[in-house]
Simulated assay, not measured.
Amino acid sequence: MSHTPPADLLKKAQFWRDDIQFRQDVLGKPFDFTTTWGIFSPEKLDDGSLMLLDYVDFQSDDDSIDLGCGYGVLGMTAARECPNGKHTLIDKDFVAVDYARQNCLKNGLNNVEVHLSNGFNEVDPTKDFSLVMSNLPAKVGKEQHYLYLLDAHAKMREGGRFYVVTINGLRQFMKRAFTEVFGNSDKVKQGKTYTITMAVKE
């Protein structure tokens, strides 16, 4: 005997397939976002990213990279706050990359490049960066975190800054890893849930 899913579930599923649209202020100015279920924090910007952006020292001519961009908020903010720079957004999730690209276009950001990359594997080898930002996921494992840090170090200019936001449980690891890779680590801010850590390429 065949089974048919309930009509109300099928109706909800149709709603879930539709893009999610929302507007939210970032550093006091609005962005419009299009997202979808299945990518991180689809209905509103996550608290970790917003906390990170409050503490980044943006320079107008920074060339930045948003590592693991999701639907784009870190890289988009850099593009707006650093209009004289060029900004790269990368993610290993092709759906996230598609939405990040849409969001950059929707918000009129033309100093950006968004593409699929597993870490820095597909980043243009001729590029280097003065600013690296990442909302580092806890679940990818310490090996992947080290690869991100080592690859970033190789692509950064002298004096470049690397800001990460992590859950508090990773703060000691980040301090140790940054110190190993960069020779320095600065805990910029610790909140109830998240910690922002920064290193400078010397």
Score class of each variant (00 low, 15 high):
39 I>M: 07
40 F>T: 06
41 S>R: 08
41 S>T: 09
43 E>M: 09
43 E>A: 13
44 K>W: 04
44 K>N: 14
45 L>A: 06
45 L>S: 02
46 D>N: 10
46 D>E: 06
48 G>M: 01
48 G>T: 01
48 G>H: 01
49 S>G: 14
49 S>A: 14
50 L>I: 12
51 M>F: 07
53 L>S: 05
54 D>P: 01
55 Y>A: 08
55 Y>M: 05
55 Y>T: 09
55 Y>E: 14
56 V>D: 00
57 D>P: 01
57 D>C: 12
59 Q>T: 10
60 S>K: 15
61 D>A: 13
62 D>E: 07
63 D>G: 01
64 S>K: 03
67 L>C: 02
67 L>Q: 00
67 L>I: 13
72 G>C: 08
75 G>H: 03
77 T>N: 06
77 T>F: 08
78 A>G: 03
79 A>T: 02
79 A>S: 04
81 E>T: 05
82 C>T: 09
82 C>H: 02
84 N>G: 14
86 K>V: 12
87 H>W: 04
87 H>R: 03
89 L>Q: 05
89 L>D: 03
90 I>S: 00
90 I>L: 02
90 I>N: 00
91 D>C: 03
91 D>P: 04
91 D>F: 06
94 F>V: 14
94 F>G: 10
103 N>H: 09
104 C>M: 08
106 K>F: 09
110 N>D: 15
112 V>Q: 00
113 E>F: 03
113 E>Q: 15
114 V>L: 02
115 H>C: 08
115 H>K: 13
115 H>R: 12
116 L>K: 12
118 N>E: 14
118 N>K: 13
119 G>E: 02
120 F>H: 03
120 F>E: 00
122 E>M: 11
122 E>L: 07
124 D>S: 10
126 T>C: 09
126 T>S: 15
127 K>W: 05
129 F>A: 05
130 S>N: 12
131 L>Y: 11
132 V>K: 08
133 M>E: 10
135 N>C: 05
136 L>C: 06
136 L>V: 15
136 L>H: 01
137 P>W: 08
141 G>T: 09
143 E>S: 13
143 E>V: 13
144 Q>A: 14
144 Q>P: 00
147 L>K: 13
147 L>M: 10
149 L>Y: 10
149 L>N: 01
150 L>P: 02
151 D>T: 10
152 A>T: 06
153 H>V: 10
153 H>I: 08
153 H>L: 13
154 A>C: 05
154 A>F: 07
154 A>T: 14
155 K>D: 03
158 E>K: 15
159 G>D: 12
159 G>N: 11
160 G>P: 11
160 G>Q: 04
160 G>W: 02
161 R>V: 14
